[in-house]
Amino acid sequence: MTKHVDEMKIVDCVLNRLDEREKRQVEAHLKTCSTCREKWGHWRAVLAQESEIEPSDALNRRMTFSIQRKVAPFRHTRWRKPLFVLMSIAAFMMFAIGLKQHGDVWPIHEPDMAKKGYVIAQHDAVPEQKLLLEPETNRKPVMPLINENISGEIWLNTETNELMFLADGLVPLERNDYQLWIVHVGDYWNGHLLELRDGSTRVYYKAEDIRSLKYLKVSVEPQGGSLTPTGPEIFHIDLIEAEKGR
């Protein structure tokens, strides 16, 4: 009895991906084997349709989150309640005062928050707030995934439901943008392009329940941003793990 041709070879035959020698062998076999011939006919019918189908946004999102669940979360560093906080408070106060003096501090738009469920602001738009002064605020340094020259930290206050993400050393990109992804426990997300100033980014985020956040990540995306993360990741900050590690 002739041994059947592996189905992958049959598919490659239909896709015209075999070299001449293999093609001749498979075609010769098909003439004598009705089982393989039926398979060949089946694949020819299935693959005859020219157009391929683009996955929906819903599938893309689901795929991304399934993969995220599989990849190892970021390296652990414990939250510090810190001496560092005291030092940073001064820096932040100077920053806030500086902004106020320039008159370009944006207030938090509560109606906007009611509509979207969160407020996000960057750089000059970061509202004057007490996040860094609050005793409940915790700071955590975060490690970049691909470039040691980049540094980052996150400030999180689960009482006031506020968060601040700061990073330095980001290289401006000519044809791409950095995009921040704020991912919630329910597996939905908000994506925001990061505004760079001298390689730094400052992002403020306030939500109705900050504990509903699962992780933040920053990835390199095509200019103007993507609907779903596609590029290499710079940061991946697991907020659930971070909370546990407090």
């Binding site: 592996d6 992958m8 070879k9 991906r17």
Partner: peptide, 14 residues
């Protein structure tokens, strides 16, 4: 050795 990546995915999908 068994075939292309596309063929592998096709058979898996089937």
């Amino acid at each position: 050795a068994k075939g292309t990546v596309k063929a592998w995915l096709a058979v898996k999908t089937k």
